[in-house]
């Protein structure tokens, strides 16, 4: 992500220190992660110490300080999904992508995370890819879903 784009986002929020989280969220959603240079630029422009930005960026799981894949896969491990076989869905995704929860593959194609509840328990087991919810997942269906990405 180039410096100009970071500056644009900061300008959009009128360089307000109180908009720090909004700015970070916007960088995160465009870039999929928060590069060090971007954080330093935000710190410099907003006059917020880098220690505070890092505190916030490591506090919320929405932010990532390491590169994330193009597609973010969230697999629900909540109680309802768990009893309907979320574990097997997770195992299948791990086998197909070759990564464990919290990891990103080398081509930066997929990032895998487990989530505690996506809020649509009736659809369990649920998998969310790039914000799109895939309900009633059976391990056999997963390969198709991932291929279509």
């Amino acid at each position: 992500m180039d410096k100009d784009r970071v500056d644009q986002i900061i300008d959009k929020h009128e360089c307000e220190a109180s908009s720090l989280i909004q700015i970070l969220l916007e960088i995160q959603s465009e870039n999929h992660w928060l590069p060090k240079e971007a954080l330093e630029r935000v710190a410099e422009r907003l006059q917020v110490p880098l220690t505070r930005i890092l505190h916030i960026a490591t506090f919320y799981t929405a932010f990532s300080l390491v590169p994330k894949g193009q597609h973010e896969i969230h697999i629900c491990q909540g109680t309802a999904c768990h009893v309907r076989g979320a574990r097997r869905v997770l195992d299948t995704v791990q086998d197909l992508t070759g990564i464990k929860p919290g990891e990103t593959d080398l081509d930066l194609k997929f990032s895998l995370e487990t989530v505690n509840c996506l809020g649509c328990c009736a659809l369990g087991p649920v998998m969310e890819i790039d914000g799109k919810t895939h309900g009633n997942m059976a391990p056999a269906m997963i390969a198709d879903v991932l291929k279509k990405l």
Partner: peptide
């Protein structure tokens, strides 16, 4: 601000 808290 050479030192700060990280994580939670």
């Amino acid at each position: 601000n050479a030192i700060g808290f990280i994580d939670r």
